[in-house]
Computed example of a mutant assay.
Amino acid sequence: MEDEEAAAVLRTVGRQIKMWREAAGLKQAELGSAIGYGEEMVSSVERARRIPKPDFLDKADEVLGAGGKIAAMKEDVERARYPKKVRDLAKLEDEALELGAYDTHQINGMLQTPEYARALYAMQSPAYTEDEIERHVAARMARKSVFDRVPCPLITFVQEESTLRRPVGGKMVLHHQLEHLLEVAKLRHVSIQVMPTDREDHAGMAGPFRLLKFQDGKTLGHFEAQLHSRVISEPRDAQILDMRYGMIRAQALSPRESLAFIEKVLGDET
């Protein structure tokens, strides 16, 4: 596990399942057979080495007669499934009234399709295991809940043209990703803009970043670079990022022009 908080949750869940299993007089192989999982999976869950899926917890609860006590841990387990930096960022996104993002190398995570995200994680070096890839993809997809919040936050994106053309995962994955951008752009509280490669004036040459604005007037910045993720809370630094983002949006294509641009790229990829 990447952090102690998630590890503690999984240790607690594992101990509870083991206690209920032993109280029911079942061996690990017997419980696994009863709920449709292998003995190794039951053993790994009890030792907090694997993250149980909701189906695992529901079936274990029923077979062991736990009366909902095991199933009730699904929400905590689901949060533990996501990396800590994703959980922390999700908390901020849930509270923000405005979110803005400028991306240079890939489609923003909140805009990615599962296939596109999976392709990105499959490129990581050192390589992720299949379980790790699925865990990261699930975490990234969970962040999309911000689009459905009520009241709706204002969400804006600026994507470098190159991100629309790089065939991450292959041409078909990119094709579906561009179609998804056009669908998300239909939401009235979402704005997607494109920064063309031929722009001479560009305020974003220092790299990608995100902005989050809150009801109390506070603005936070956030950026990721290789192995590091950092939240910018110093007011002066956040103000500079806010100013730069405004300039980037002014220099990029308008939202209407950007949608036409994406449609053209999509046509070129067909």
Rank of each mutant, 00 (worst) to 15 (best):
T270C: 03
M41G: 00
A60I: 02
H175F: 14
R236N: 06
Y128M: 15
A250F: 01
G14A: 05
L154N: 07
E183G: 07
D94L: 00
G67Q: 01
M41D: 05
M123G: 07
A6V: 06
V137W: 08
F147Q: 14
A203D: 14
K171G: 05
G32A: 04
A90Q: 03
S44F: 02
D198M: 09
K144Y: 05
V231L: 15
A138I: 03
F157Q: 08
G204F: 11
R236H: 14
Y245S: 09
V42F: 01
L266R: 14
A138S: 15
L178P: 06
Q124G: 13
D76H: 09
R79Y: 11
A90F: 11
G109A: 08
A238H: 13
S162M: 12
K264L: 09
K218A: 14
K186F: 00
S44Y: 00
Q112Y: 08
V42I: 15
K74R: 15
F223D: 10
V63G: 00
I192N: 06
E179T: 10
V194C: 04
F223P: 00
G169Q: 09
A225Y: 05
E40L: 07
S125V: 03
T104A: 11
K74H: 10
A66W: 01
G25T: 01
Y102H: 04
R143W: 07
V45T: 04
F261V: 07
A24G: 02
Q16T: 01
R81D: 03
A60V: 05
I133C: 11
K264M: 09
R199Y: 08
G100E: 06
E98L: 04
V194F: 07
V184L: 15
A142F: 13
P235H: 09
G38E: 04
V190G: 03
F214H: 15
V77T: 08
V137L: 12
A142M: 08
V168H: 09
D55F: 02
L187R: 15
T113S: 11
G207Y: 05
E160N: 11
Y128I: 06
M110Q: 12
P126E: 11
P208L: 09
I192S: 03
Y245E: 12
E234H: 14
P255E: 12
Q177A: 12
E263M: 06
A6D: 13
H180P: 03
A72D: 13
L253F: 13
H222D: 00
K84H: 09
E98P: 03
E5L: 12
K69V: 04
S43D: 02
L10C: 07
F56M: 03
G65Y: 01
F261N: 02
A139I: 13
P114M: 07
A142E: 15
I232N: 11
M41Q: 09
S254M: 04
E2G: 10
L10R: 10
Y82K: 13
R87D: 06
K144C: 13
R81I: 03
T113I: 10
S33R: 13
I35P: 08
Y121I: 04
P153V: 11
V137S: 06
Q16K: 01
G68P: 06
V86L: 14
T104R: 07
V265G: 02
A6H: 07
Y116A: 10
L178A: 10
A117M: 12
L26V: 00
G38R: 03
L241G: 05
V9Q: 04
V137R: 10
P52I: 02
L253V: 12
A225H: 11
S233C: 02
E22L: 00
L174S: 09
